[in-house]
Each structure stands twice: as structure tokens, then as C-alpha cells.
């Protein structure tokens, strides 16, 4: 199991930052979603043993964060959210240092530093000092130091924060490549939904320190089974009236487009029959899925549920 949390509570002074978080997730790529201040970074820090939890327990890959912190950190590569580098060092030397701290022999650390720098696209600037780098390049350095010892689990905290669209695409491309081409599991914390959607299979949504939704992204998108997007040609008003008569909820979003919600017990066939009766052509028929944004907004709008809303359908390893 990638992540097992049981009543995990973390407090900063009097404020509960994580409140009785309980969840068990197995995924190759897990996204931590939530608005600012939801507790994503604190959860990551708790998993790394950087902040002490007040009560509860947490396990990563079966290792207890309280008792096996060092072993966990051997397995993990952590990319911090904020600026993190040693001034005055060249990139390659910095990475060699990080590698040696992870236990690589000096020569192996140097070789690996070169390899990783070429991988993230900083091969040509590896003898330059980090403080002279742009923010996007520094972000890549942070990713490179995460990869230096070939960790089994990568924890990336806001990896695309502050990047321009090109750099963001490059970063997401690297993350997707790592997910596909390595045995490593990835946990990405972000408030950018598209990043999570682009890289992750499972998602965990946090709000005010509690898990408000979690599960496979594809399965979560299919929760609205009775909503259809339809475009028709013909008597739109008559068709709307007919659909209303058979018990469908309708909303015309433009001149020919409709959003139709089927009442319980009705099948989509009834829509086609209604169209046939009125001689209306159905030119587009699409079972509408929620986007991750829809799910996210819906979950955040709701009050905190007593129990987390779990969606367990769908393949755990289903790609986005």
C-alpha cells in the first residue's frame, strides 16, 4: 500500500492542520489536491518526518513514519515547493553532494549527477552556479536532486508552481516519463488541477486538514451517470417539451445544444424515441463526465462530510 493514514492529526500550536486523516491508497501516481492551506504540504512533511504528528499513525509502503523515518527517507525523493539550493556551488557539485548524502559513493554520485542533469535538460549548464539560474531551471535542479539516488517513491510538492507554460509542459513531460519508465511511485501535491489530471491516476482531495474525496480519477469522473450532452437539428423547443414530458431535466446551453439529465429508471433510449417522434436529428450524443475541476469544486462547495467520500471503482492503475 503506498499510503496508509489512520487518524493522523498534526497541530501547529493551537491550530489543527491535519485533523484525523484516515485513508489507504495504492497508486502508481497519486495527486494531493486542495486549496491553499488545506494541509497538503503539511501531510508531506509529516510523511517525511519533518513535522511531528500529535496522534494517529501513517505508513508509506508499509513503513511507519514515526519509527522508520530514516528508512522512509532512503526510499523517498522529495522535491520541495520553495527555493532550495546551496549557494556558491555548481549544479553538478550540488547534485554530487546530495547523492553522497543519500549514500552514493563519490564516483557514482558524480556519474549519476551528470546523468540526471542531462535527463532534466540541464546538461549544458551543469558547471554553472545555481543562483544564476532562472526559476524554471532551479525547479529542474530541485527535480534532479530528487532523482539522484533513484528513489522508489517521489514526492513532488507543487512541481509546476511559478513556471511559464513551456517550462510547465516540460516539467509535466518529465514527470509523466518517470511514471511510465520507472518502477517509482509518485505523489504530487498541487493546487493546479490540470497538472494532477495530466500525471496522476488517483487523487486525494484535502480541505481544511481533512480528506473530503479520494479515489481513481477516471472512476470519479463517471459519478454523474445520467447527464448527457446533446446537439440536435430540428424543432428544439418541441424536443425540450417532449423531454420534459417524459421526465427529463433539460437545459439548453446554446441554440442547438442541450444538457439532459435522465430521471431515475429512464434509459437514453427514451431520448432517441422522443427525437424520432418529433423528427429531430440528434447530431451529437455524449454521456457527460465531470472534469476533475467539476469534482474538485463540488467537493469543496459541500460542507465537510462525516466520512470521506470514497470512490473505489475502476482500475487502480488506469492512466489519465
Amino acid at each position: 500500500m503506498l499510503l496508509e493514514l489512520e487518524n493522523l492529526t498534526v497541530r501547529y500550536g493551537k491550530q489543527k492542520v491535519l485533523d484525523q486523516v484516515s485513508i489507504a491508497l495504492e497508486s502508481k501516481a497519486l495527486g494531493l489536491l486542495g486549496p491553499n492551506g488545506a494541509g497538503k504540504s503539511t501531510l508531506i512533511r509529516a510523511l517525511l518526518g519533518l513535522v511531528r504528528h500529535e496522534s494517529g499513525s501513517a505508513r508509506i509502503e508499509g513503513l511507519d513514519i514515526q519509527r522508520q523515518g530514516k528508512r522512509i527517507r532512503e526510499l523517498i525523493g522529495y522535491m520541495p515547493e520553495h527555493e532550495s539550493y546551496l549557494a556558491g556551488m555548481t549544479v553538478v557539485r550540488f547534485l554530487r553532494f546530495m547523492g553522497e548524502m543519500c549514500g552514493l559513493a563519490p564516483r557514482a554520485a558524480m556519474e549519476r549527477a551528470h546523468e540526471v542533469l542531462f535527463y532534466v535538460g540541464l546538461g549544458e549548464v551543469r558547471y554553472r552556479k545555481i543562483e544564476g539560474f532562472s526559476y524554471g531551471m532551479q525547479q529542474k535542479v530541485r527535480l534532479a536532486q530528487t532523482l539522484i539516488h533513484g528513489p522508489r517513491i517521489l514526492i513532488l510538492d507543487e512541481p509546476t508552481n511559478g513556471l511559464d507554460p513551456t517550462a510547465r509542459d516540460e516539467m509535466l513531460g518529465l514527470i509523466r516519463d518517470m511514471i511510465q519508465n520507472s518502477g517509482s511511485k509518485v505523489i504530487i501535491s498541487s493546487h493546479l488541477l490540470r497538472d494532477i489530471e495530466a500525471c496522476c491516476h488517483e487523487v486525494m482531495v484535502l480541505k481544511r486538514g481533512r480528506v473530503v474525496a479520494s479515489g481513481n480519477i477516471e472512476a470519479m469522473k463517471q459519478t454523474e451517470e445520467n447527464l448527457y450532452e446533446i446537439r440536435v437539428k430540428g424543432d428544439l423547443d418541441g424536443f425540450l417539451a417532449e423531454l420534459g414530458r417524459i421526465g427529463c431535466g433539460c437545459r439548453a446551453d446554446d441554440r442547438e445544444g442541450l444538457e439532459v439529465t435522465l430521471a431515475d429508471g429512464l434509459t437514453p433510449r427514451r431520448i432517441f424515441e422522443a427525437a424520432d417522434r418529433l423528427g429531430v436529428q440528434i447530431r451529437h450524443f455524449y454521456a457527460k463526465k465531470d472534469t476533475l475541476e467539476d469534482i474538485f469544486l463540488k467537493v469543496l462547495e459541500d460542507e465537510l462530510p462525516a466520512e470521506p467520500k470514497l470512490v473505489r471503482e475502476g482500475r487502480a492503475d488506469a492512466g489519465p
Binding site: E100, L104, Y119, L147, H149, G150, G183
Partner: peptide, 22 residues
């Protein structure tokens, strides 16, 4: 494409030594 490091890692003393060394 990404290739993970598959070599051996050294013990805690060698890891610690990296700090004063650098």
C-alpha cells in the same frame, strides 16, 4: 527516458561524512 539508479548505497557514516566533506 528516465532510468533509476540501481547501485548500492553506503552506510550512515559515509552519508554523514558528506556534510563535513563538502
Amino acid at each position: 527516458s528516465y532510468r533509476a539508479w540501481e547501485g548500492k548505497c553506503r552506510g550512515p557514516l559515509r552519508r554523514w561524512l558528506a556534510i563535513p566533506k563538502f
